[in-house]
Design a protein around this nucleic acid. Sequence first.
RNA 1: GGGGGCAUAGCUCAGCUGGUAGAGCAACCGCCUUUUAAGCGGUAGGCCGAAGGUUCGAAUCCUUCUGCCCCUACCA
Length: 499
Amino acid sequence: MFKIPEDRTRKLEGMRERGINPYALRYPETITVGEAHALIEAGGTPEVRVAGRVMAIRHHGKSAFLKLKDSTGMIQLYFQRDRIGEDEYKAYKLLDLGDFVGVEGECGRTRTEEATIFANSYKVLTKSLLPPPEKWHGLRDVELRYRHRYVDLFANDDVTAVFRLRSKVVSEIRRYMEDDGFLEVETPMMHPIAGGATARPFITHHNTLDMELYLRIAPELYLKRLLVGGLDRVFEVNRSFRNEGISPRHNPEYTMLEAYQAYSDYYGMMELTEGLIKHAIAKALGTEIKELDYQGKKINLAGSWARKSYSDLLQEKSGISLTSSESEVRDCAKKLGIETEGIDHWKLLNEIFEDTVEASLIDPTFVIDYPVPISPLAKRKEDDPNVAERFELFIAGMEIVNAFSELNDPLDQEERFRQQVETKDEEAPAEVDMDYVMALAYGMPPAGGMGMGVDRLVMLITNSPSIRDVILFPLLRRTAGSETTPPPDGSDGDEDSCQ
RNA sequence: GGGGGCAUAGCUCAGCUGGUAGAGCAACCGCCUUUUAAGCGGUAGGCCGAAGGUUCGAAUCCUUCUGCCCCUACCA
């Protein structure tokens, strides 16, 4: 838990004694700090009204400088006793770092030319009872930063900048997709069958229907039902959930863009992907970017991005090919220290690929034509039924996009679903999604589809080493008693809603 | 799940091979009406993450636990 320092409580009471509401109801008709700066830049000395959080106070006897911060920036305030009056000047001693105040005053500059609001009056808007972090270093402790992101945000401007960029990226993704004729849709997050990807799901339960539900691991199968329904271009910026490990590149809930385009295919998806990512980067960073620096790696974004076949890359880096025998693949895997016990041939092959190839794909590279057995939702190539029309886009060794020409043969789909179910793999769906097969049976137009990891794209653009740096509230273990107070009756809380 | 690292004041950090706790910022009290990581003088603040152990003596050494970080595994 936390302790409120006595000096702050004392000041809170001091405010109330003076008839000041430490939690004011409102402070309307303000301009932003950014607007105030613009007015000062324009050379005037207008009267303005601003509001924000006090980030610094420098007392000078009968005057004081304060720094006021709002979401548009920081501006200096100058409180002079003679200007704001004896009483108000005395009361300003009750202000602390972290408090919110509203100020009226005249814009101008100090003799060092710093833009400043010379306060005529001020109003306490919110008393802060906990001291902010150290003013120079900010909040460094990563655990506190993630657990108390609100502090991280107001103490560390670079953190705020990352999340502003993230927001920009997401809105530019939407703009690009809409401009290309895609319709944004929302599909269920609670699924009766966890399909559309291979991953362990989170399980939940609906009481009234007495039904097991899974948090979606991907929206794919619902979006493709919409293609059957005649919505030819759809996308969803979606949160999906996977009950798996946490790492610098994995959070149990994460954001994807999934998009489906009728009459297109995976080549079309490559064009869409490249255009979309280039657009998002250019708009987010405000300029056409040819090279991105990610964690010391130079990423060349210029020109058309490379397209290399899965099989060629595998051959080149590991000596294994798609036609290598079972024992060749096993030997190779063993040499790489990959666990081979009970792992099937194609999965092993893919692990060899991940081990030997992925890290080397720094510049954007479309890896194309994956083996069919690890691509259960992709169409087979016409000239090679063992290879699927599928690509993954890698940047900086990270998988950013997975896409394919969508399988729309209901009988083939049903067969591949059955094979998945039969593996009894924990990550495979427990049953065949017959409604989806039925949808395909009504006929789904040929289509390309793609799924893009938005968090990872934002990592690249903001040069963030960990996915947690681009997720406002990453999942952390709950610490004993630190975040909540137990209810007074000693029970575990609301039993109606706890399962 | 396996391996390594970290945990000291509200915050950022020192604390050597064991001898009983330090700085800066923030806070409090003074002085200061143009400072800007303001300055000067003073004060207060700690069960050194938790529990055991070794020792005359533990922030320091050992064990266990908790949390976080990194690597690894599963995955995107």
